[in-house]
C-alpha cells in the first residue's frame, strides 16, 4: 500500500509542479508581449489549444 501512495504522490505532485511551472512561465512571458497579440485574452474563449 505504501507503494501505491508513493506512486500517487509522485505522479500528482509532478503533474502539479509541471502545471505551476507552465503557469509561471506563461505569466513571465505574457508580460513581454502586448495583450492584443495574445489572442486568448481578447474576446474569444475558443483559442488555439492544440486539440
Amino acid at each position: 500500500m505504501s507503494y501505491v501512495i508513493a506512486g500517487w504522490v509522485i505522479g500528482l505532485s509532478a503533474l502539479g509542479a509541471y502545471a505551476f511551472a507552465l503557469l509561471a512561465r506563461g505569466r513571465r512571458l505574457s508580460r513581454l508581449v502586448a495583450p492584443d497579440r495574445q489572442r486568448w485574452s481578447t474576446t474569444r474563449a475558443d483559442t488555439p489549444t492544440g486539440r
Binding site: L23, R31, P35, Q38, W40, T47
Partner: peptide, 13 residues
C-alpha cells in the same frame, strides 16, 4: 484591452 488585465496564458477555456 490594452490594459494588462490578463498577463498570463490563462483564459476562460
Amino acid at each position: 484591452a490594452s490594459a494588462p488585465l490578463l498577463t498570463s496564458t490563462s483564459s476562460r477555456l
